[in-house]
Simulated assay, not measured.
Amino acid sequence: MERNGESCVQRAAAGDSAAFGLLVEEHTPWLLVRLTRRLGSHEVAEDVLQEAFIAAYQQLAELRAPERFGAWLCSIADNKARMWQRRRITQLNLLDQLDLAAPPEQEKQEIRALVRKAIGRLSDPHRDVIVHHYLKGYSYQQTATLLHLQTGVVKSRLQKARKRLQKEIMAMAESSTAQTFKLGPDDLAGLRHVARFTSDDPKRPIMHCVCLDAGGRVVATDGSRLLNWSSKGLASLPAPMILDSLRPEMIPDTDSATLILEEESATLQTADGRRMTFPATPGPYLKYQEAVGTPGPILAVVRSERLMACLEAVEPFLREQHDLVKSGWDYMP
C-alpha cells in the first residue's frame, strides 16, 4: 500500500483501517520515546499511546489539515499523558508521602505538576520503585518481585527517592513551570485581528474565547464564520489552550512580546515590562459544526475565471459541511 502521508491520512479518514495501520506504524517509535521520557515507564507509555491512537481514529474525520496529522496526534498523546498523570498522582496521594513544605500560596495543582517533572529527573533505580509502588500501585513485595530486588532494598530506595524528590521539587518551585513563546509583529497583529473576530453571544461563552491550537493554529468564531490563522511564534505549542475574553486592546502595539502560558492564565509581557493577563484553560475548542451550524442554500455569483476556480475548490468542502446534496448546488458562469 502507498505510504504517502497526506494520502494515507485521507484514506484513513474515509474508513481505510489498513491506511490507519500505516500511520500507527510510522508514528509509534517517536511518540513512544516522547511518552516514555515524560511518564518514566515504557510500559505505561505503551498503554497511553494505545489510548491516543484510539482517540485519534475516532476523531480523524474532524482533522481539517491532513498535512498536520503528526502535530495533531502529538497533542492528543500529550493530553492523554497529562490525564494519566493527574489521575494516578491524585489517586495515590504521593504529595502526602513527600510531606512537602510548600509556600502558602502554592496551589496543589502546581505542586502536582512539579512532582511529575521531578519524577522524570530521578535516577533509573529510584524512578523504577516510585513508578511501580506509587503510580502503578504495587505493594513492596510486588515491586520487589517485578524489579528482581529484595523487599528491604525497595523500601530503602523509596525512602531515598522521596528525599530526592523533595529536593528536586523545592528547587523547581522557585522557577516558573509556564510555557513561553516569543511573538513578533505579525503574530501580535494576527492575535489582534482574531480577537476582533470573537462572538459576544451571552448564551455561548466558549465563542468569547480564542483557541491556540497545537502547532500554532489560532482559531476563533463569530457564530457564522470560523477564522483559522497560523502563528509562526506559536508553532511549537504542543497542546490546545483556550484564552478567555481576549480583546484587541489587550494585545500590545509593539514589535515583540512574550506569551506566558500557565495552567489557568496567559500573560503577554513586553520588553519594557508591561503585562496583560487573562484567564486560560486547556483545550480543545468547539467543533466547526458547533460553531457555525448548518445554513440554508448558498447563493454565489461568480464573474471571473479566478473566482470560478475558487468556487470549484471550495465546493467539495461546502458540500460536506452543509449537506449541499439536499439543498442543491448550482452556479452560472
Rank of each mutant, 00 (worst) to 15 (best):
K203D: 15
Q321N: 04
K80M: 11
T151F: 14
E51M: 08
L286F: 14
A61P: 13
L243W: 10
S265Y: 14
A257M: 03
I298F: 09
V301I: 13
N4R: 09
D16H: 04
V129L: 04
A19S: 10
V129Q: 04
R116Y: 12
L318I: 08
K182R: 10
P29G: 03
A271Y: 11
S75E: 14
D244W: 15
Y285N: 00
R82W: 11
C310V: 07
L100T: 01
M276A: 03
E62K: 00
R64K: 07
S230P: 11
S236G: 03
S231E: 10
L114S: 09
S304V: 07
R204E: 15
Y140N: 00
Q97A: 11
P316W: 06
M172P: 02
L237C: 08
A56T: 05
M172C: 06
S7P: 00
L318M: 12
L73E: 05
A300V: 13
A214R: 01
V210I: 14
T143D: 08
T277H: 02
L259G: 11
M207S: 07
R88L: 10
I242F: 08
G21F: 14
I76C: 06
I111W: 13
S17I: 00
R112N: 14
A300E: 10
A239I: 10
R217H: 12
V210G: 04
E168V: 00
L299K: 03
H42I: 00
R275L: 04
L165P: 01
L22C: 06
T258C: 07
E2I: 11
A173T: 02
T267Y: 03
G328M: 08
Y331P: 06
P297N: 08
D222T: 06
M172G: 04
D201S: 06
L261G: 08
P284F: 15
P297Q: 09
L35M: 09
R319N: 08
V194C: 04
L114H: 09
H133Q: 02
H148K: 07
Y140A: 05
D255Y: 09
A12T: 09
E263H: 14
G296M: 04
I111N: 02
P333H: 00
D187G: 03
P248L: 12
A189K: 12
G273F: 10
Y134Q: 01
T143E: 09
